[in-house]
Structures are given as C-alpha cells and as structure tokens.
Computed example of a mutant assay.
Amino acid sequence: MPSFDIVSEVNDVEVRNALEQTNKEVGNRFDFKGSDARVEHAEKVLTLFADNDFQLEQVKEVLTGKLSKRGVDIRCLDEGNIEKVSGNKVKQAITVRTGINGDEAKKIVRLIKDSKMKVQAAIQGDEVRVTGAKRDTLQEAIALIRKSVTDYPVQFQNFRD
C-alpha cells in the first residue's frame, strides 16, 4: 500500500552555517563596531544580543537573510520577547521549531478526512503518515496539504509504492 510521511524538519548544519555567517557579517559591519551584537546557538534556541532595539532588528534581518539564502524556511522561527539585559543591552530568544505538534497534526488529519479522499492519515509522534490505495490520490493529498498548510514548513518523505 503506497504511503508517505508529512514532517516539519530543519537542516541543523545550514542553521549553524547561517549563524556563523551572521556573526561574521555583524563583526565586520561598520555600524556594529564596538558593540556587543552577536548570535548564540544552544540546542534549538538562537539568542540574539545587541546594544539597543534598532541593532537587534538589524541582526535579526541579517540572520533571516542568511537563513533564507541557505534554504532554511524562516516560518520555522518562533520569536520570543525582547528582554533588557543590563543598561541599554537587549536580547531576544528565537526558537527553531521542528516536528509537527499535536494540534497541528490533528488539523492535518481533519483536513484530509474532510476532503473525502480515499486516503487514511495517522499521527505518529511528530509526523503524520498518509496511506492510500493509489499513487495518484496520495499526490492529490500532497497538493491539498501544500495549498492549505501555510503557517509552518512541511516536507514529504518516505514516499513508498
């Protein structure tokens, strides 16, 4: 029986490379000379540091530009609140989301069931497996999900005949 998995993943190597490029560009830019602007990476959290709110926005723009150039979808970024560290210095935590959480997976399953296609969807951890009798119906399901799910990036893996 043909099947495929719907996942939401991010290439960690590309994220790390974009982060290093961002730190290098921020270190070389004239408007950041003498400032403490940088990006740190721990697990799935990127922490942006800057001297003021304007510089923080500039660092964020550089980071999103580098991520998009390296093929990382920026819809997977969850921005936290801007916090004051000391004096004028500020920081912001940005979480890199991976996997499809329970509510989003339920919405995908409901979308597939409501479409009346002859496919079955099942939640398996942080991914959704879709099975069907024909390859064409699975491709229709992929098209439906690509059109409907726009809040976060989704990929389709393990397409088996």
Rank of each mutant, 00 (worst) to 15 (best):
K106M: 07
Q124H: 09
R129I: 10
I123C: 07
K113N: 07
E127S: 13
A122Q: 11
L138G: 03
L144H: 07
T95A: 07
V128C: 06
S115W: 05
I123K: 02
Q124R: 08
I123R: 01
I112T: 10
A121F: 01
T137D: 08
V109S: 00
K118Q: 08
I108N: 02
G132F: 15
K118T: 03
E104D: 14
T95D: 10
Q120A: 10
I112L: 15
D136R: 04
A121M: 01
R129Q: 14
A133H: 14
K118A: 06
E127A: 11
Q120S: 08
A122M: 13
G99N: 14
Q139I: 02
D103F: 15
K113V: 02
V96R: 03
K134P: 12
E127Y: 12
T131W: 05
R97H: 11
I142H: 01
A133L: 09
K116R: 06
D136P: 00
V96K: 06
N101S: 09
I112S: 06
L111S: 08
V109C: 01
Q120W: 06
V119W: 04
I108A: 03
A122F: 06
A143D: 15
V96T: 08
Q124A: 15
R135K: 11
T137C: 00
V119K: 00
K113F: 05
T98F: 10
N101Q: 07
V128E: 05
V128Y: 08
A122G: 00
G102E: 14
Q139H: 14
G99L: 05
K147R: 11
Q120R: 09
G132K: 02
S115T: 05
E140H: 03
R135W: 15
S115Q: 01
R97T: 09
A133Y: 12
L144I: 08
V109M: 03
